[in-house]
């Protein structure tokens, strides 16, 4: 090995290129394989060395060109303007604008129980689909008050799904609360925010129920609603207590959240 290296000419990397020799460089015939073939000792295979170690590798000799901060800002601003323009073309409203125009506010004259009842019926259909509720049995079983006659789904599975369900359109009422005035209030949920449920009551009022420090009652039918009628047919219902302290999330966050065991349900 040592004999071989001494026999070949010592490579001096600082020596000037041999004069009068022109080298054509192109991506089709790169310089490096040829250079390796001429410099590496003969028993190594230069093409193999090139393919495994050097091919496609780049060494940047200069510092990369960085954009100035002002140019960056300018670009960002331009992108933002462009996006806004796009949005305006499509007719999408921003959050601030929506708030200014009062999109999230329900007009007083619109807070009607009868107006939101169809939404509740839609919700019943949704929950039947979500929980895969069985179709209603014959009338005498449906209206019997004997629990053993009803075919009941598994409780833990139902709870796991219900925790992530959309509650817009459900009927909630406050069962217990630190604020005693809230107890007994309830109605069809028209808007769920991070910390409140906004409901329309049977007296055609819009009420804001804070989630924190209150416990809600949520009723879910045991059987799917008969298609076409859209009405509740007086069948049995599951009654759940929903502990508001633990669901202070937006409806969308709640849907994708992993819930862990919590310490207490105390208010």
């Amino acid at each position: 090995m040592s004999g071989a290296s001494t026999s070949t000419a010592v490579i001096d990397p600082y020596a000037p290129f041999s004069q009068g020799k022109t080298i054509q460089l192109s991506s089709a015939s790169p310089f490096l394989p040829r250079y390796l073939a001429s410099t590496l000792p003969p028993h190594t295979s230069p093409s193999h060395v090139y393919n495994t170690r050097l091919r496609g590798k780049l060494l940047i000799l200069d510092n990369p060109l960085r954009e100035s901060r002002s140019a960056q800002l300018k670009q960002e601003r331009a992108a933002k303007r462009e996006a806004e323009k796009q949005r305006r073309v499509q007719g999408v409203m921003g959050r601030r604008e929506a708030k200014r125009l009062g999109v999230w506010e329900l007009r007083k004259e619109d807070a009607k129980w009868a107006l939101f009842l169809p939404i509740h019926h839609l919700w019943l259909g949704y929950i039947a689909e979500l929980l895969q509720l069985p179709p209603p049995p014959s009338d005498d079983i449906l209206h019997s008050t004997d629990p053993s006659k009803h075919r009941l789904p598994s409780v833990p599975g139902t709870q796991a799904k219900l925790v992530k369900a959309d509650l817009h359109g459900s009927i909630l009422s406050v069962k217990r609360a630190k604020n005693a005035d809230l107890v007994g209030r309830g109605g069809i949920v028209v808007h769920e925010t991070e910390n409140t449920f906004k409901v329309v009551t049977a007296k055609d009022e819009l009420k804001v129920l804070p989630k924190r420090n209150s416990v809600f009652t949520l009723r879910v039918p045991v059987y799917a609603v008969r298609p076409g009628t859209g009405e509740e047919d007086g069948g049995p219902m599951w009654e759940f207590e929903l502990y508001g302290n633990q669901v202070c999330f937006r409806s969308s966050e709640r849907a994708s959240r992993k819930f862990k065991f919590k310490e207490t349900i105390e208010l």
Binding site: P147, H150, L152, V155, P156, T158, Q159, A160, L162, V163, L218, R219, V220, V222, P236, M237, W238, E239, F240, E241, L242, Y243, N245, Q246, V247, F259, K260, F261, K262, E263, T264, I265
Partner: peptide, 11 residues
């Protein structure tokens, strides 16, 4: 259930 939902009651 995770201190969110109680055991259901049949009504």
């Amino acid at each position: 259930y995770r201190a969110i939902l109680s055991e259901p009651k049949l009504v």
